[in-house]
Design a binder for these strands. Structure first.
Lengths: 134, 134
DNA sequence: TTTTAAATGCAACCAAGTTGCATTTATGTT
DNA sequence: AACATAAATGCAACTTGGTTGCATTTAAAA
């Protein structure tokens, strides 16, 4: 899956292969962890305009190339890969020491009881702690 | 617990009983669900200044009168009541239809396996779905 | 009643994210 | 290869949540 080139990925998703998109996707493929807007802006410096960046983050997300993570920092982070359909078996780990966000698959789906009349569509979990590197 | 007056609550937490704080706390006691900044600003209109509001939200949170919720909307919401110490047995339900945020206690604590070397301090869960009213 | 630290209001600021619009570019068609 | 066209880009201006510095006001202890 990860061995596709950015060109191939864009093509498969039916997105036009522009300079900006290739640079952005290239960056995502290199980065192991979730990226904030400022991470991206910094990394792609003069190469990319603010609004173009946001518009591409949106289209990448819609195409299932990346997913958007709320790590409870107050802003969003973006990571390569699609969120699983049911949303039950994917969690995000936020290192309180280095702020890195890790995507992690859960072996057992979360089962949460909600009161009568409430219908659960999706469960999103943020685990805060300290990562292996810190 | 909920039958304390705002005056009593402020006194107990060692906070000065100012006009603004009484109005804000009064509002929180009336509101069943989590409030966003704009909810509060709207409700307390001319009564309260932006920076004063934020400063008081911070001190209320530190005093354990309210807790701050990240409902994945991109901004924070604030709700009456303290977050439990370990953070493991409290979840937030976000109604995708009316955007209301409900606090709910979990009967069984969430147990999540993290990879070797990772240390979990706290788990925060957002359940998205449709509430009983919708 | 006086004193003083804490709380308030105001203006100015910052960063994330959005929108409208004119220009440019990728791609499908001749 | 040249053309047409819809989609993508860049720019500026904007919105909103949230913060900061500072002078003024106020709660409450002495």
């Amino acid at each position: 899956m990860n061995r596709m080139s950015h060109e191939q990925i864009l093509e498969r998703k039916g997105l036009r292969k522009t300079k900006v998109r290739k640079a952005l996707l290239h960056h995502f493929l290199q980065m192991e962890h979730a990226q904030s807007y400022s991470d991206l802006q910094l990394a792609l410096k003069s190469e990319i305009d603010k609004s173009t960046l946001y518009r591409n983050l949106t289209s990448f997300e819609q195409a299932g190339i990346i997913h958007r993570i709320n790590d409870h920092s107050g802003t969003f982070k973006y990571a390569f890969g699609e969120l699983p359909k049911n949303g039950h078996d994917h969690a995000h780990f936020v290192c309180e020491s280095c702020d890195t966000v890790y995507c992690m698959e859960l072996s057992t789906p979360l089962e949460i009881n909600v009161p009568d009349g409430f219908k659960t569509n999706n469960v999103q979990t943020i685990i805060k702690g300290v990562c292996a590197k810190c």
